[in-house]
Write a protein that binds this DNA or RNA. Sequence first.
DNA 1: CACATTACTTGACGTATGTCTAATCGTACG
DNA 2: CGTACGATTAGACATACGTCAAGTAATGTG
Lengths: 113, 113
Amino acid sequence: MIDLTATLCCAPVASGVISDDDALAVALRLKAVADPVRVKLLSLLLVSDIDGVRNSDLARHLELSDATISHHLGQLHRAGLLTRSRRGTSIYYRVDRNSLAALVRVIDPDCCL
Amino acid sequence: MIDLTATLCCAPVASGVISDDDALAVALRLKAVADPVRVKLLSLLLVSDIDGVRNSDLARHLELSDATISHHLGQLHRAGLLTRSRRGTSIYYRVDRNSLAALVRVIDPDCCL
DNA sequence: CACATTACTTGACGTATGTCTAATCGTACG
DNA sequence: CGTACGATTAGACATACGTCAAGTAATGTG
């Protein structure tokens, strides 16, 4: 599998045509965000970034099952977009702002200008 | 269906929690990009932006069938990320840099700082 | 240790997606 | 008009994805 935590920058725009491997890596990370539930999750996590948010709280807020939220958080986590830290029986998720910003830059046509 | 050409900005970060409708609109546009072939298409189109590129040329370059490329270009076009203009029997595709930049801003955690 | 709480995993189900071949549409040019 | 060329559409197929219910794992508390 491909290391989705590596840093990428300005692939499509600046450095000529993107390679197959880079295109796949970018697509996999974008796929991790390209779902309405996960967009809402990122939004929720970004506005309540203080200490992170728990699976069960997110499930209640989005009116979806724990299993479904766990699935989505796993996708975002595997893509390197979330960090998690356990406190007691709960696991608190936070957005890794650097990773998200890096992903954003890759498809930004104005990047590297 | 949802109008994917409307402009969105800074939804997750600044303006509190994103609405269901906005989350869906953002996710649909991200889905349009979240595919390795379409990432390569965007890359190809961005670096050869002069006059646009034809379906058949892209198909040859990516070694996929015309129908498949047409499918992917349709996805990107429906998402408002490409413009197309006919010259003769050929249709030339170009990236709508403003739309792409707007999409990028929506998920940029550093947007609106 | 037994129990409660929280999160994750598994298996199942329906739906959506990517790809191709073949057929259709649009435009140009003898 | 008929033929050619480029692009899209339709249909078919395998694969991937989102969701849930049920079961399992990890941690804390009496």
